[in-house]
């Protein structure tokens, strides 16, 4: 029983990190019809920048906030300077965002080198929690709570606020939102930096668990893409379900059938897409 609970919690932890990185990708696609393949790079930058702050004596929480804000500013610059110029041109979007992966990857390699790095667990959460006979790190429980908190925040934001209403309307018909008096460029930028911020937050929170290493952004991107395909492009709720599903499968798969756990995830993706090509919660076909 303990074994089951512990592994479920581990799966949820990983799932929540995946959720934070995948939800932004999905929201940005839903509103702007832009697949930002460099989204995983925001995750990576978040964790490296937080590492740099912690390494220089800042405390974890301050590093978390600063790294997230810095990545959001970078996201704003990238959106205004590059992405906004190629709306509606899918080939250009793919080329640009793949290019960004390599540029950002090389910059991080140049600054932080190629070794495996990790952010220490903050003191406040260094304890472990007793689950029956076993132990579970308090920090991981905190990551689960953060994931749930941000899912609740997204829900509230989407359903209970005026801005959320505008964003939902924008997913339906952005041109009409503009014609009704809203500046769609500002909405695009705001949603883009919000998504970048979520990814960066995931990166910082994942720092003590997954660490950072070169080419990690590709692993993250692939997971995030699988999640949004399963959950449905454009739907953060789908990203949430997809991420939890993959987190749990990954946790148990690694134990029972370690060699094929990735294969199972791909298998599930194929089954979902065959039954519902738009993904579990999606309206647009991938």
């Amino acid at each position: 029983m303990d074994f089951f609970i512990i592994n479920t919690l581990s799966g949820l932890t990983y799932g929540m990190l995946l959720f934070l990185m995948a939800s932004g990708l999905s929201i940005v696609f839903g509103l702007m019809r832009v697949i930002n393949l460099a989204h995983g790079s925001f995750y990576l930058l978040g964790s490296y920048i937080a590492y740099a702050f912690v390494h220089n004596g800042f405390n974890f929480w301050l590093a978390l906030i600063l790294a997230t804000v810095i990545v959001m500013v970078l996201g704003l610059i990238i959106e205004r300077l590059l992405i906004s110029r190629i709306h509606g041109n899918e080939t250009a979007q793919i080329l640009l965002t793949v290019g960004l992966i390599f540029v950002i990857g090389d910059i991080t390699l140049w600054i932080w080198g190629g070794n495996f790095l990790s952010i220490p667990v903050p003191d406040l959460l260094s304890a472990t929690i007793q689950v029956g006979e076993s132990q579970f790190p308090a920090y991981r429980l905190f990551v689960i709570l953060m994931g749930v908190f941000f899912a609740a925040l997204l829900w509230f934001f989407e359903n209970k606020t005026h801005v959320g209403m505008i964003v939902r309307a924008g997913v339906d018909d952005m041109e009409m939102v503009g014609a009704l008096g809203f500046n769609i460029k500002v909405i695009f930028s705001a949603v883009f930096i919000f998504g970048a911020g979520l990814a960066a937050l995931g990166g910082v929170l994942g720092g003590p668990i997954l660490g950072m290493y070169p080419l990690m952004e590709f692993e993250i991107l692939i997971n995030a893409l699988i999640i949004v395909l399963i959950g449905g492009l454009g739907s953060w709720k789908g990203a949430f379900i997809g991420a939890v599903l993959i987190g749990i499968i990954d946790a148990f798969g690694k134990i029972y059938i370690p060699s094929v756990s990735m294969l199972i995830i791909f298998g599930i993706m194929v089954i979902v897409l065959v039954i519902k090509p738009s993904g579990l919660f999606g309206e647009v076909e991938a």
Binding site: R168, A169, D172, G178, A179, G181, I184
Partner: peptide, 21 residues
């Protein structure tokens, strides 16, 4: 959006009501 703020409104062809609102 600036034109809309000049108090000029559009009722578009095909209605284009927001489906998910």
């Amino acid at each position: 959006h600036h034109i809309s703020k000049e108090h000029l409104a559009l009722v578009p062809q095909g209605k284009r009501v927001f489906q998910s609102l």
